[in-house]
Amino acid sequence: MAVKIIKRLLSYVLVLFGLSILIFVLVRIMPGDTARIALGARAPEYAVEALREEMHLKDPYPVQYIYWLRDMLRGDFGDSIITKRPVLQDIKSYLPATMELVVLSSIILVVFGIVLGVVSTKYASKWQDGLIRVLSYFGIVAPAFLWAVLVMLLFAYLIPVLPVSGRISTGMTPPPSVTGMYIIDYLLSGDPAGAWDAFQHIVMPSVVLSFAGLSQGARITRSSMIDNIKKPYADAERAYGIPERKILFKYLLKPSMNSTITTMAMDIAGIFGSAYLVEQIFGYPGLSSYGLSAMMNKDVFAVSAVIMIEGVIIILFNLISDLIIRALDPRVRLAEQ
């Protein structure tokens, strides 16, 4: 058991190490002269040269990599060329907004994905199942930014019930920062109206971000449940008079969750990717917008840090999904002993 966990952690460290090399290479091969971009076209050459020196840009790549890795392990991600502030500080101010978005859309994804999967199982081959199937195909094939535009047209323009952009309405003061997630912070400071306002701002982007994973989750849940519904134990449970709803949501859902959880974890990781465009469209000041503008401006340290942090978060999701599967499925948990 302990050996298993150590092995697992070791493999995560290896993955992160690989990721760091990849990021380093990608960022360095981006075209353009970093130091020149940072200082602008009119800066004198000697100043640019000094900056190159300071950023170790003149050393061979392996040496540059080691400097970067060493600083990063110390918690120093360098300074942003654009904001002129330490990257870590930037990330601290942008990450909570993105986390709030990702968490809310994960909740929507998990809850609705599973419920729709169970409902399609219950009504297999009936019109309800057909409807969910068609909708989920749309959810899977159409990219999130398309939904973003559609939903925005619908709920902000045609039926203007939701705000179009930002995290809170203009004129509102942000809540005192505890977690950095506005809904929670407003609630903590005893301001439900503020929380409601923040929720109205975040609901469209998070729903849009959840579509793809939700649709896929519903399909996968349905297909494993349909497999299991044919097993004799399902017949037996029905024959023993256990209520139909309990059979579906407890006795069939639990053994059918493994592939659902695995794919949902990957879909949630994928939300970070989609968030780049969706945050742009909804004018939502999150980490993704920050990362995107950093990329456009060849802000090497910022880009590297954003990708690295998202890598860590994705690995965390992976770990969590593994732990959930182990908790739910004794076959996985006990097979190791």
Partner: peptide, 15 residues
């Protein structure tokens, strides 16, 4: 009550 052919498949595997 019903007893099925397959003792492996007639009990729920995760309870």
């Amino acid at each position: 009550s019903v007893i099925f052919q397959d003792p492996i498949a007639s009990l729920n595997p995760v309870f």
